[in-house]
């Protein structure tokens, strides 16, 4: 059933996969400095920044919008706990705990991602 041209498609696909894997792993490797900061972003704007290393007791964050998301942060990890959006991909993503991990609620334009902590400061006074 396969034809000659398929080889060409397969080749391109393999190259794309290889390049993207290498690219992402380089990017992740560079960011991973052992510290973890979770960013909650809505509509392209950062709405909350949580130092995951410093979370002692679970923090619950509600994000309103077209839909509602409930986010739970614990020591070293964070996740979408509940959402009333139709696809629930964000909740299914489960816990994020590594630098570069990410969960997206597309219907609500909300995203959580984990970044290496900026080494610039130790803590923020408020």
């Amino acid at each position: 059933m396969l034809k000659k041209g398929d080889l060409f498609i397969v080749l391109i696909v393999i190259i794309m996969i290889a390049v993207s894997f290498v690219g992402v792993s380089i990017f992740r490797g560079r960011e991973d400095d052992g510290h973890k900061t979770a960013l909650i972003i809505r509509d392209g704007k950062e709405i909350r920044r949580i130092d995951l290393d410093a979370v002692d007791e679970p923090i619950e964050i509600t994000v309103d919008g077209d839909y509602n998301n409930t986010i739970i942060a614990e020591k070293g990890r964070i996740r979408f706990m509940e959402a009333d959006c139709p696809d629930k991909v964000c909740v299914d993503t489960g816990w994020l705990y590594k630098t570069g991990d990410m969960a997206v609620c597309l219907p609500n334009k909300v995203m959580i991602k984990i970044e290496g902590k900026s080494q610039d400061i130790d803590i923020v006074t408020y």
């Binding site: 900061t37 950062e46 709405i47 909350r48 920044r49 949580i50 130092d51 610039d120 400061i121 130790d122 803590i123 923020v124 006074t125 408020y126």
Partner: peptide, 27 residues
């Protein structure tokens, strides 16, 4: 220690400047 001073208009954890201190308190 480098203590960030919260940006009153930004998100929690964002800052407008840093004070570098030893044996002090920043409130």
């Amino acid at each position: 220690w480098r203590i960030g001073i919260r940006n009153p208009k930004g998100s929690q954890g964002s800052y407008i400047g840093i004070v570098s201190v030893k044996d002090k308190t920043v409130v």
